[in-house]
Design a protein around this nucleic acid. Structure first.
Length: 224
DNA sequence: TAGGCCATCTGGTCCT
DNA sequence: AGGACCAGATGGCCTA
């Protein structure tokens, strides 16, 4: 996986290759809304999910009660982990006592809930980082969300530091008429755009879709 | 069709 | 013992 190196200045919010522009390219229209991917039923694991048993509506913690029969019955054919090393770890499902199967279902449900909570948290993160929030743009992937958030935090930290330096400078009683050293003047430096000075791929559309205070990229900001 | 992303299942480990 | 967390595996969906 591409490492996110320390980024300087306006590149803070640029995602590493494979996550940045591609995240948007990848994020291009995807059947309109981003709703459930329709993978719940069945999902992986080979479990035969009851369609609809695990809809997006039930994604949040709290739901999923009752340990809906995850498809343990006929399901789990070669499901995750089961055929590893050619053997059935922990015993074949069919041979599991009902009690153990019940326990497994409970564990599965709990894990599912945990992952849903994690996804909810990621959604919350997506909602506060600057990128094009639009129905026509697919949401950021998990990895892109994390990397973008990290860069955003770094960018904010840098901005804060610059402001501190500026305040300290002004507090020293320096004449305002004197031009600030470039290193102290945040406004003399190039503005920090989440996607750097280059035009964001699909810039006009995405920048207009972006609901933040500023444009996503300098290119767009220069052309109101 | 390959690759990316995702949801889910599962067993192991650690903690309470 | 039970729950949380984790990583590996699997299969489905979608896009280029």
């Amino acid at each position: 996986m591409a490492e996110l190196k320390s980024l300087g200045g306006e590149a803070y919010l640029a995602l590493p290759p494979g996550y940045g522009p591609s995240a948007f390219a990848y994020g291009a229209v995807r059947g309109g809304t981003e709703g459930p991917r329709g993978t719940y039923p069945g999902g992986g694991g080979g479990a035969d999910f009851h369609p609809g048993a695990l809809g997006k509506s039930a994604e949040s913690s709290g739901e999923q009660s009752g340990d809906e029969e995850d498809g343990f019955e006929a399901g789990v054919k070669g499901g995750a982990g089961f055929e590893r090393e050619g053997k059935l770890k922990g015993g074949a499902l069919g041979k599991k006592p009902k009690e153990q199967r019940s326990l497994r279902l409970s564990i599965n449900a709990r894990e599912r809930r945990r992952m849903h909570d994690l996804n909810d948290a990621l959604d919350g993160l997506r909602s506060v980082i600057p990128y094009a929030h639009s129905p026509s743009v697919r949401k950021l992937s998990k990895i892109a969300t994390l990397l973008l958030a990290k860069n955003y935090i770094l960018m904010q930290a840098q901005a804060l530091e610059e402001m501190r330096r500026l305040v300290a400078y002004l507090n020293q009683g320096q004449a305002l008429s004197a031009p600030l050293p470039a290193t102290l003047n945040p406004f003399a430096q190039s503005a920090v755009y989440p996607f750097g000075g280059a035009a964001l791929p699909g810039c006009p559309e995405k920048c207009t879709a972006f609901t933040g205070a500023a444009s996503l990229c300098k290119h767009c900001n220069d052309k109101p």
